[in-house]
Write a protein that binds this DNA or RNA. Sequence first.
DNA 1: ATAGGAACGAGAATCAGTCTCATATTGTGG
DNA 2: CCACAATATGAGACTGATTCTCGTTCCTAT
Lengths: 147, 147
Amino acid sequence: MSSANPHAWSEHARAVLARAGRQRGGARERVIELLARQPCALSAVEIEDELRARGEATGRASIYRVLDLLVEHGLAERVTVGQGQARFETVDPTGEHHHHLICERCGRLVAFDDPGLERAIDRVGQRLGMRVERHDVLLRGACERCE
Amino acid sequence: MSSANPHAWSEHARAVLARAGRQRGGARERVIELLARQPCALSAVEIEDELRARGEATGRASIYRVLDLLVEHGLAERVTVGQGQARFETVDPTGEHHHHLICERCGRLVAFDDPGLERAIDRVGQRLGMRVERHDVLLRGACERCE
DNA sequence: ATAGGAACGAGAATCAGTCTCATATTGTGG
DNA sequence: CCACAATATGAGACTGATTCTCGTTCCTAT
């Protein structure tokens, strides 16, 4: 789930990085632009392939660097959906966040948010005396279309 | 978190696999026995090393095969904690399950369960019209010791 | 005891992700 | 506009986990 306005996110991302003293660069620009217009999380390999397909081939190392940088600055989130690869998606500047639900029939990945779930997680953290800084929730099952 | 009674789990696992028409075999037996007595999730590599250390060296392919088989039959669960490797742990035959909380300072992995969280997840599924068959929850932060 | 399907194991292959290092860009101060 | 120092980039080697291949060995129902 990218922000409703892809442009807003990419602008925001550029601003945050500039403020952090980062110079601009082609690879970064390409990754940011691509990520900005995605409806849901992409893996690094998908990004690499997609950029190459568009004739904007970009070094793998740069892609991972940009992704790390975005995550580090809270601009993107690393989503671990499957077994072996991480996916990345933009984080809404307003701070809203969400979780995913994956249909094990068709592979569709859907984002959702739920205040009740967030509250339940907060309570767990308190109960266990742990400072929960982040949490990943992934629901697996059959989506409406596949049921 | 294995079942309170490791013996019960390994017996159960053997029974389920026998019922499924699987033959017995040394590698499987070794992995099941090892898994049965673990307090928490082990990675495939840890299993391989631990077995070798005990003089029960077992082929890597067999370990992964056994693990897949266990997951397939609902006897074990794949827990994706970090970036690059999966961990596996026994699933209690009674159906009870739990989630994990990882301390990002010391790497300690702790299991917990929480009915409130389960209820919140059920509600999300209903609200979204999805049949949620499984769910993964991972809380990341600082544990009491590290805070 | 034996045939045929399972299970095994060694090691090669794959795949995501990381690292290295030489080169190219960027932005600042002059 | 120029030089320079900091940063960004890319090719490709490398790593570590997992998967694949395939010949061998083990089970178990006749």
